[in-house]
Design a protein around this nucleic acid. Structure first.
Lengths: 219, 219
DNA sequence: TCTCCTATGATTAGCGA
DNA sequence: TTCGCTAATCATAGGAG
């Protein structure tokens, strides 16, 4: 029975402190796991207890390694961010366009959104650093892609909305051999062309969610 | 009023997820602070929020830098070293990636089915019913995709290098115009992804004392 | 959106075995 | 030391403004 409200200070009693540490470490790992699940945060926790030679690693050792390796790449991302800050308008523009895409796609239904994200934008790691000219190129590229996306979305919206009965009849009457395949192929082609360069991906990732990095180090 | 017991799964609603993330991030920082005070843990937390360009750093950027610098001289971890260097690591990773591929492919299969139904069947007539041949078509398509995935997994096993799951998924999901080039690229990406593990090794060299380290990294 | 609120579920301090 | 227990404190989901 928690008789006292914990006073927030160093627990001098050794046993008590260790007990508290164990309990709270367990609690934090649980919290981390929950956060990871609930918010889609890819995370890891490495916990060395007092005197323990083996750390408690969550969710697993190699996942931890992966997360840490990505942490290592952070400086690169920071560099890019810095570059983007210098070209602030570009970054803003990208973010805005990205938001537009998401909005429109959501309006148009989860189907296209999921497909585009999965085939074109879903997370991949970044392996390069963008040069100034590459960034300029990117802006132009994105601009063009956005037009295509809008056209495509419009097209999909038109074709997805239930057509008038006459149109349905007509379409059914002149059914091509494999209408689904054609439709799918066209969409795939559009998607394919929409795939960004790998080094661009951090830009897209940035607007798509949160990430969290934490380090604890016992004295 | 927390009416429901939280169901431990990804929150699909965007706003709700972000709200939850904010609350829980705050909670975790508080927990970290308490743990630090109560148990004398020298710790830091770096938290990147959704769309925030600057992370929330606790207790301060300076202290975080100190902790991170100590992270570079981390204690022993023979087991992890082994896991990272040797077959165990690869095999674990292989298993996990295979599982991911299976999962992804299942999702893709559903997606494609939905797409086909929508564009090929449902879109044509609100009250239409899929013909026998159309359904057979869908079944065949899914079957084919699964074969591709199996082949891909086999290929991966033979080369014993793991490309990122996204690349696998992409390759399996859409026939690309230049498969060989893509293959090569995927392998390079895989190599790249596996290389950085090595920089971790120095972190697991000898040292003493209890410590706690945690990292969270959004995809 | 954001903040504030509070009922409810979750965490945990202190204790005894 | 390490369990398990239970009351008490704490965190937070969901709703209201």
């Amino acid at each position: 029975m928690s008789r006292k409200k914990v006073k927030l200070q160093w627990i001098s009693n050794d046993a008590a402190r260790r007990a508290t540490f164990k309990k709270r470490r367990k609690g934090m790992i649980k919290k981390a796991a929950e956060l990871s699940t609930l918010c889609g945060v890819n995370a890891c926790l490495i916990v060395y207890g007092d005197g323990e030679q083996q750390p408690e690693i969550w969710p697993s050792a190699h996942d931890a390694a992966i997360v840490l390796s990505r942490l290592k790449r952070l400086p690169e991302m920071e560099q890019i961010k810095q570059m983007m800050n210098q070209e602030g308008f570009m970054r803003q523009r990208l973010a805005k366009l990205q938001e537009q895409v998401r909005k429109q796609e959501r309006e148009n239904g989860e189907l296209e959104t999921t497909l585009l994200l999965r085939h074109g934008l879903a997370g991949r790691s970044m392996h390069g650093v963008a040069s100034r000219s590459q960034l300029a190129n990117l802006a132009w590229l994105i601009d063009r892609k956005m037009c295509e996306v809008r056209r495509r979305i419009e097209s999909l919206r038109r074709s997805s909305v239930m057509p008038p009965p006459e149109a349905v009849k007509k379409e059914a009457a002149s059914a091509s051999p494999a209408p689904e395949a054609k439709e799918k192929k066209a969409l795939e082609a559009a998607t394919e062309e929409l795939q960004p360069q790998e080094w661009l991906l951090p830009f897209f990732e940035h607007g798509n969610g949160a990430w969290l990095d934490a380090c604890f180090l016992k004295n």
